[in-house]
């Protein structure tokens, strides 16, 4: 049984003066606990696809199911991380972390303690009562990660969550996220344009092309890399080989789009 299933998803954006086809016939499945990456140039509809999986946008055609139920029935099972942290500047870090339970009206003392525990685990114990502006980018994204995980989602959607960070924070956070996801056996979909990140973190990569957004190629990540934390995976010989293959494929896509 596939955990997450996308069946022939197509989406077009309608404007006053016409429409653009953002996505065309996207189908894939992800099994429970797996990590999928959607890799592609900007404008290939990655973020649109992620919003569709999250149930935030209704696709023009096709359907998304999570555990064989339509996605609209299981919204509280989904966690979403954005490119930037989007912590609310007027809330403390703890209140930011608790926004999900608050929205779902599940705020209890137990969940508050859990949030404090998670923030402490991620090295944020000193800033629990601080406001987001006093934190570094890496700390903010870690707080956003707690906010996403606190509602205990089964499916995590990551929309380039590391792209706004400096390289060092990015590598550290990749390891942290990968470790947490394995620990809790979460299923994840990562959107990225960073080839290295996609290879280091995922089990499978879907390479997408733009205009319209379509799946061009699928790469299975070798088992040796899958079992390594991202930082270690980056040093592995097979990482470099796969990187070159993906690189070549991406270049082909770009060459096509220039012609």
């Amino acid at each position: 049984m596939s955990f997450l299933k996308l069946n022939q998803i197509s989406h077009q954006y309608l404007y006053k003066k016409g429409y653009t086809k953002a996505l065309k016939d996207i189908s894939f499945t992800a099994s429970e606990g797996s990590f999928i990456s959607l890799l592609g140039p900007s404008g290939c509809g990655k973020t649109t696809l992620l919003s569709i999986i999250a149930g935030l946008i209704e696709p023009t055609r096709g359907e998304v199911t999570l555990q064989d139920k339509p996605i609209s029935d299981s919204k509280s099972d989904i966690g979403y991380m954005l490119q930037q942290d989007y912590l609310f500047p007027w809330k403390t870090i703890l209140d930011n972390a608790l926004i999900g339970p608050q929205i779902q009206q599940k705020q209890k003392n137990a969940i508050k303690e859990k949030a404090i525990q998670m923030l402490e685990d991620l090295g944020l114990s000193d800033v629990i009562d601080s406001y987001p502006h006093s934190l570094s980018g890496g700390m903010r994204q870690r707080a956003a990660l707690v906010r996403t995980l606190i509602t205990d989602p089964n499916l995590l959607l990551l929309d380039e969550p590391f792209s706004a960070l400096d390289f060092q924070s990015k590598l550290k956070l990749e390891d942290l996220v990968s470790n947490l996801l394995h620990q809790y056996n979460k299923t994840s979909v990562l959107v990225t344009h960073d080839i290295g990140e996609a290879i280091a973190m995922s089990d499978r990569i879907y390479l997408m092309k733009a205009d319209p957004g379509e799946i061009q190629k699928v790469f299975e990540i070798p088992i040796e890399l899958r079992n390594l934390p991202p930082f270690q995976a980056r040093k592995h010989l097979k990482y470099q080989q796969l990187f070159d293959r993906v690189w070549e494929e991406l270049n082909k896509l770009e060459a096509k789009s220039i012609v």
Binding site: S51, A54, L56, K75, S76, I78, G79, Y80, L82, Q84, Y86, F88, I99, G100, I103, Q104, R147, T151, L157
Partner: peptide, 14 residues
């Protein structure tokens, strides 16, 4: 207001 703030909330089913 940046629509990503509401996106965060909507992802929790707000």
């Amino acid at each position: 207001v940046d629509s990503n703030f509401t996106k965060v909330l909507k992802s929790f089913g707000a």
